[in-house]
Each structure stands twice: as structure tokens, then as C-alpha cells.
Design a protein around this nucleic acid. Structure first.
Lengths: 208, 208, 208, 208
DNA sequence: CATGAATGAGTCTTCATTCAT
DNA sequence: GATGAATGAAGACTCATTCAT
């Protein structure tokens, strides 16, 4: 996966219903193979097999393995970013305490909804092109949070972009720890509360 | 890298000076090849070549490629953990504000000292066994920080382990963002200050 | 192209105008794809696409890829042979000097009229069955020239067939050199004159 | 074989005796597979199998299939060119009649010595890069013949290069006809005599 | 009849690992 | 102990051909 970022889009636009179904089957298969076999054993043959089609068909929809993996990763990350953006719109103009809890809840919910998927895709994101792709999506979230913070009813930030970036990235670590399975049940149970605590404290401290 | 977690230790104990030197050369070579070629092109032949020895010799020291990669990853993460543990010993009994800044400084310094190495190894850590290995090392750091927090002169934590874990993981995300290169120069410049802010605010908020 | 020599003829007799048009479109497409992509990338899908039809339709007209390529090659070579035969008829009974210049002019004109086509088809002719096909067509030309030589008004050949064959094949090499592009502009410019010189000299020398 | 001309040389210099033997085995195998199966079925697997080694070994000596085919073609053509050059040196300063017969004899002998090999390689020479390679070697022969003609004791050529080129290429066609098998036994038997006749007539006619 | 998605055998190429020297 | 040639399984990708729509 040297050029994961290259051709991200399916070859055929899923105009026909069948295409959409096939593409979805491929994405699901990727997650499954990734989960069961790991990235290095996530081969086109195995993906196609699990998706119930031939390798040839896979290549009818994606120009190469990397494009497929990238598409799956992008779909996943876009979903997370969509959630964060929606949360940001909903909290616009609220006090920072509300923002903090809404962000934590939204991000956590989005990431944990398909925990398997989230976990499986960390490996893909770690590859060359995956990091760039992830970077682009993170920028979207950062921008949304920046706008959000600037609208806070009870605080004023000197450098909202910086604060937004730190805030977002501070959520990433702990959530990944859970997904990677290095967390005790306790940790998991109390995570959301602690993250709200963390974010509120930081936002309040960071406000002028 | 199907069994990254398997045999971590070199076959030979580095009793002889030559072994230690050879092993070190291999580790350095791994980082270089990883950086220049990426994980998928980080082959045993290339590693051996860059380390100035034959593939055969490589297999004298490690039973297989995964063991070598795992050893390099472990060495790297152990180094980070050592730093964190030292910092924790040094700050024992201090106020939380001091602890926060010391932890941030120590962790950042350790990770950014060999930024190339840190970055290169993310891919290795993403592989099957890498996550578990990373998890084990993180436990060490978590334990050290837990002990540290419990010794704070100006605070008392209800669940120091939980707080330690969140605190540590909150550092991970932002640092990775820098290493992945998705950070603006501004971000990088002000990172340490913001992380100290973040950690202090969280620790104070989390203290009973 | 394992069995290039196999079924040469289209499945449908071009009774219907549409068939003839479609077949012609396919032949043109073959030349274009061959020129732009080379033999190994001259696939049925690409041919059909360029001919403005589906692969399925292509198989309505030819039983397989090799049959199509063979048909195109045969059409091309037949055209050359037709020209040579016509020239031979036109010069019947003339002196050898006239024959030589007419043959050279006719062959050169036919081959260079569609230089791209001629050039593209060398690769096809090089394949297994292509050589046999080419051999058959050359026999036609050889026969025509043999008859021609036997009718010469100013010469008598001991073995006209032999002389015809050598004469014909002596033209082939130089013309191919031009088409392959290894010829200087000078060469090209003076080629016809030299070939006439060559042929006249040989025919006169070969005449009893 | 899109880039047949690319890396022509073996990866390892055949310093060790074993290398030379292995390389020779590969070259022989290429000719055999080419002869028995045709160019399109001349795969790396089949070549290696016939050479009595594994595919991996093949790739230890050549970076890819095209490089191997190109090397075989070049070796063959170089041999022909060597012969022609030697003949040209030997006849330097002789009368054109002598030159003509020596050239014909030399070229024919060289090409027919390993008729199978010569025949098999026509297909390779037809490929993209093969034509260029062949072009380069032909230039060598052309140059040698040009020098030869300029030294003729009994003739003076206005444009020896042009004459050399036509003369050389006029040999190519008839010889190929034999090798392709489209020749009657008669043709073959009398070929040399006729070619000498052809060349002598042309050279004498072309001399000022 | 036309279409073009699906198939899967077959290609080239790479690489971890072994073992004779 | 060191070396590096040999191995061959496995991966990514292509393409001729078929057949359901």
C-alpha cells in the first residue's frame, strides 16, 4: 500500500442498485478480513472470497487493493467527521461545558458504534497514504470544532484552532486505547465521564 | 508479521560484545529501511544489507522477521517507558502542577528525540501483535503515573489508575499528530504549553 | 494467440450491410489499439470499446481474439498481394526493367499507404500462426511474379520461381527497416530508386 | 514486453562459473520455450522450469522477463554482427565480387548455424523494445559494410552507407523466408548462389 | 440481438526462510 | 559462524470468454 491515497473512488459509480450492493459487500468484507486476518493477510483474493465474488469482480469496482482499502477507510472516517460536524452545528453558541460533553458523547458514540470496524482500520490508517487521508478528515473535524469554540457563549479563545486541535487529539488517544483492547472494563465504563472532565477542564483553562 | 508477539528476545544473549553491536546494527537498519521503504518493503534482505551483513546472519540473531520487528518496537517503547518512569520517580511527592509539566516534557522529549524512529514504528505497532506489545508497555507507564499521582502533595485522587490512564493517553493523540506530519508549525511550537495546560487542568479537576 | 491460423473467417457472411460495417470498424479498431497499446495490451475489451461496441458483439463476429487478429492480418496482406497481382498483370510481356520498377513502386506504395497499419501488424505476423498466414499470401505474390518473369520480352529465366521469390523477398527487408523506424530520412528518400536499381540488376543478372 | 530495451544486463556479473552456467541455461531455455510454445506462452515459469531452476532463481539473474528476453535477443544479434564485422575486416580492399560472396556466406552461415534460435527470436524482435535493439545491432553491421564498400579495389560508391544498408536489408528478407519455413527445399539449396548473384549485381550497378 | 458484469485461470514478481559451501 | 543462492508459495492484477438480462 504505497499509494493508498491515489485513486480513492470506485471505478463505476454505483448508479445501478447492484453496484451499490456489491461495493457495500466489499467494504464489509474488508473489515472482516482485516479483523480476522490482519492487514498483511488482507489480500484481494481473501476479500473477494469473503465478499462472495471473484477477484476479477473486485477489480471491476476498484483499480487496485489500495484504492479499496482507502475507500473503506475514508467511508469510515467521513462518518466520524459527519457526526462531529453535526454535533458542532447543534451546540453552536452554547457554553463550553455543553460543547465538551456533546463532543465527547458524539465522538465516542460514532467510534464505538462499529468498534470492530474502527479497530480494524487503525492498521490501514497507519500505512503511507492512510495517514494523509486521516489527516484530511481530521482537518475537517478540527475546522468544525474551531468554529464551535469561537461561538462559545461563555468563553473567548485566543487561538481557537490550536485549542480545537488539542481537544480533538486528546480524545483520540483514550478512545484508541479502548478499541485496541488494552482497557479494563472499569476504564471503559468511566471513560466518557473522564473525557468530559478532561475536555471541560482544558477548554475552561484555555479560554482567555 | 503474523506473530509479532512471538519470540521477542534475540536468540543469543548479548554476552559477547559483538552480539550487542550486531543487534544494534540490525535495529538501526530496521528503522532506516522502514523510513526509506515502508513496512511492506522492509524485507529481511534489505535490512541485512543495510546492516552490513548477510540474511543468514540476521537469522542467527532472530528466528524470523517478526521477532526482529517486535524487538525493535519493544526497544523503542521501553525507552519511552523508562523515561516516563524516571520522570515519575523524580517528581514523587511534588504538587500536580509540577507533575504535569514534567510528564509532558519527558514524554515529548522521548518521542521527539528520534522522531523518524517513532514515526516509522507506528506501522509496526499497527500490525497484529504490535498492539499487544504496545499495550504491555503502556501498562508500565500507567502504573508509574498511578503511583506518582497517589503521591501528589496537593491532591488526592479517587481513582488514580483511571486518571493516570486518561492523562497518558491524552498525550498520545497530539504527539502522534505531530509525528504523522499533519501538524502546522504553529501547532508544533505551542504544543508543549498546551499539553501542560491540558494535563494540569485535568489533574486538578480530577483531584477530589 | 495460440491458434492464430484457426478460423479466419467471420462467423457471419457480410450479406447484411451492417455486418460489413461492423467488421470494418473492428478491423480499424484493432489497428488503432495495436498502434497505441501494443500487441500484449490489444485486448478484446479495448478493441470493442474503440470500435464502439460491446465485447459481446465482437464475439458475434469472431469466435475468439486470435481469429479477429488473423482476419485483420489477412486482410492487410491480401491487399498487398492484390496490388502485386495487378501490377503483374499490367506489366505482362514487358521488358524486365519495366517490371522491376513497377513491382517496386507497387509494393512500396501498398506497404507505405498505411504505414501505421503495416507496422502494427508485424507483431501479429510474428505470433505462432501469423507466419503461416503470411507464408500463404507470399506464395500468391510469388506465383504472380513467377508468371510475370516468364513473360518478359527481353529475358528468359532458368528458374523463374526462384528468381521471383528472391526478388520479392529482397524488397521485404528494406521496407520493413523503414517501417520499423530505423531508417534515416535519406534512406527513405532514396529507397525507391535503390530498390529499382537492385531489382533491375538482379533480374538482368539472373536472366539466362 | 513494453520496455524490452530497459535493463539488458544480468543482475549479477557471471564472475563465478556457476553464474555463467546458469545464465547460459536460461538463454537456452528461452529459445526452447519460444520454439515449442510461442512468445505469448513463453512465461517466466515455463522458462525457469525448462532451465531446471525455480522462478526465484531466474529473478536473481534478471530483473524481469523482458530483460531476459532482451538479453537473449541481444546475444544472438551480437553474434551475427560479430560475424559480419569479421567478414568485413577480412575482405577489406578486395573487389566487390569477393565482398558480395563473403558477406552472403558469412551472414547465411551465422543465421543458419542455429536456425531454431534465429527463428524463435523473430517474435521477440517484433516487440516494442526488440525492434530498437535490433535497430542498434543493424547499425553496427551497416557501419561495417559501409567501411568495407568504401575500400573496394574495383569500385567507388557515391553513397556507400545507403548502398550498405540496402545490401544488408536485401539479405534479411530471403533469409527470414527460409527460417520461417516458407521455403521449398530447392529454394534453400540455391539460396546462397542467388543471393551472391543479387548482391554482386547490385553492388556493381550501384558503383559509380 | 446487444450488453457488460462476472469469472477464475494464468502472469509476473517478491520475499521469508533454508542450507550447502 | 558467515554467506547468499535457491526455493516456491503467495500476492496483485489482467483478460479471454460466457451468459443472464
Amino acid at each position: 500500500m504505497t499509494a493508498l491515497a491515489a485513486p480513492l473512488k470506485p471505478r463505476k459509480s454505483p448508479v445501478q442498485a447492484r453496484s451499490a450492493v456489491t461495493i457495500e459487500a466489499l467494504h464489509v468484507a474488508v473489515i472482516q478480513v482485516l479483523t480476522r486476518e490482519g492487514l498483511s493477510r488482507c489480500t484481494t483474493t481473501r476479500i473477494a472470497e469473503r465478499a462472495g465474488m471473484s477477484v476479477g469482480s473486485l477489480y471491476q469496482y476498484y483499480p487496485n487493493r489500495d484504492a479499496l482499502l482507502a475507500a473503506v477507510l475514508e467511508q469510515h472516517l467521513s462518518g466520524i467527521a459527519d457526526t462531529v460536524e453535526r454535533v458542532c452545528r447543534d451546540c453552536h453558541g452554547q457554553p463550553v461545558g455543553t460543547m465538551a460533553s456533546a463532543l465527547v458523547e458524539g465522538y465516542l458514540a460514532a467510534k464505538l458504534r462499529d468498534a470492530e470496524e474502527s479497530k480494524a482500520l487503525y492498521a490501514v490508517a497507519g500505512e503511507r497514504g492512510g495517514a494523509e487521508l486521516a489527516g484530511r478528515v481530521y482537518k475537517r473535524m478540527e475546522a468544525a470544532i474551531t468554529t464551535l469554540l469561537a461561538s462559545a457563549s461563555d468563553a473567548r479563545f485566543e487561538d481557537p484552532a490550536m485549542t480545537a486541535s488539542i481537544a480533538l487529539n486528546a480524545l483520540v488517544g483514550p478512545v484508541r486505547t479502548i478499541l485496541d483492547g488494552h482497557a479494563t472494563p472499569q476504564f471503559e465504563a468511566r471513560l466518557q465521564g473522564q473525557l468530559v472532565l478532561l475536555l471541560r477542564a482544558y477548554l475552561r483553562a484555555g479560554a482567555g
